[in-house]
């Protein structure tokens, strides 16, 4: 049965209901195409909420990657551009350098940021571009169907390493975030997750910090968000959340990796 949502809302309000939560205006009404249990939707919502809360919608430009978030701009109700695979931070550089008064962020997955876009990522960070990078790390290529990512864990099966990631053959899980923290061009680097309500709240604070930092012009702020890919991992959403806690978070521990030095 089709429910007329608008009419249902009106009826509830007429009966004296109180609005306690509503979706940010910075998300469109397009339903997320992400799998149930995936972290992209939560990450999208947090970023869009922060932009609305800071009142910077008219000054913000987002850059969407290639990967599951390739059509992120269908969900973000803000001005956005779609970048070639791995090039989001170079595109963001072009936007920010010619529009220094704007807020610019790149939203990238692990394949995009840490494999094909490694050079762009490292040099964007090394130049200290005043942008935010949101790095979604789920240890696998989601959109193309579960292939091995640079962040895949040792032993983790994927469609291109069906017997598990073997370091002799495939190399090691790459924690680019920790490497980037060594660069003087990065200002704020943190690793967060959206697997629990508490972590969602912490992640939102980090995202807010990344946007606030752009006003300081002190370099890149990067928030890595460790999430599950239950479809790619071939698990239920609940299994994937458990697997994330038991496996991903030991390889990619949560917390701040580089925090701005305080002046006092």
């Amino acid at each position: 049965m089709e429910i007329d949502v608008e009419q249902y809302k009106k009826d509830l309000l007429a009966q004296g209901a109180e609005v306690v939560f509503s979706k940010t205006k910075n998300l469109t009404d397009t339903p997320f195409s992400y799998c149930g249990g995936c972290g992209h939707g939560v990450a999208h919502r947090l970023i869009m909420e922060v932009i609305e809360e800071m009142g910077i919608t008219d000054k913000t430009i987002g850059v969407a990657p290639v990967g599951c978030a390739v059509i992120a701009y269908e969900f973000w109700n803000i001005d956005a551009v779609q970048a070639a695979h791995g090039r989001a931070s170079a595109v963001a550089t072009g936007i920010k350098r010619t529009n220094p008064e704007k807020f610019v962020f790149a939203y990238q997955g692990d394949g995009d940021l840490a494999a094909i876009g490694t050079a762009e990522t490292v040099h964007t960070c090394n130049r200290g571009e005043n942008i935010a990078i949101f790095f979604i790390n789920n240890g696998i290529y989601g959109m193309t169907g579960g292939q091995m990512a640079p962040t895949s864990l040792i032993g983790m099966p994927s469609s291109t390493a069906p017997y598990g990631r073997n370091p002799d053959m495939h190399g090691y899980p790459l924690s680019l975030t920790n490497l980037l923290a060594q660069l003087p061009g990065t200002y704020y680097i943190t690793r967060q997750a959206v697997n629990t309500a508490a972590n969602v709240r912490k992640c939102k604070k980090a995202i807010r910090q990344a946007f606030e930092n752009q006003k300081l012009k002190k370099g890149v702020s990067l928030v890595e968000i460790v999430t599950n890919c239950n479809s790619g991992w071939k698990m239920t959403a609940r299994q994937a959340n458990k697997w994330l806690e038991e496996n991903m978070l030991s390889q990619y521990p949560l917390g701040d990796i580089k925090v701005p030095k305080t002046d006092n």
Binding site: V81, A84, R87, A90, V91, G94, I95, T98, N99, V122
Partner: peptide
């Protein structure tokens, strides 16, 4: 006018793409 040496031709053309998205002559 901004003049920026990129890390590669790949990055340079994508920086042009970014600037062009905002209507700049790049």
């Amino acid at each position: 006018m901004l003049v920026l040496q990129a890390e590669s031709e790949v990055a340079a053309i994508n920086m042009v793409y970014g600037a062009a998205c905002t209507g700049k002559k790049a």
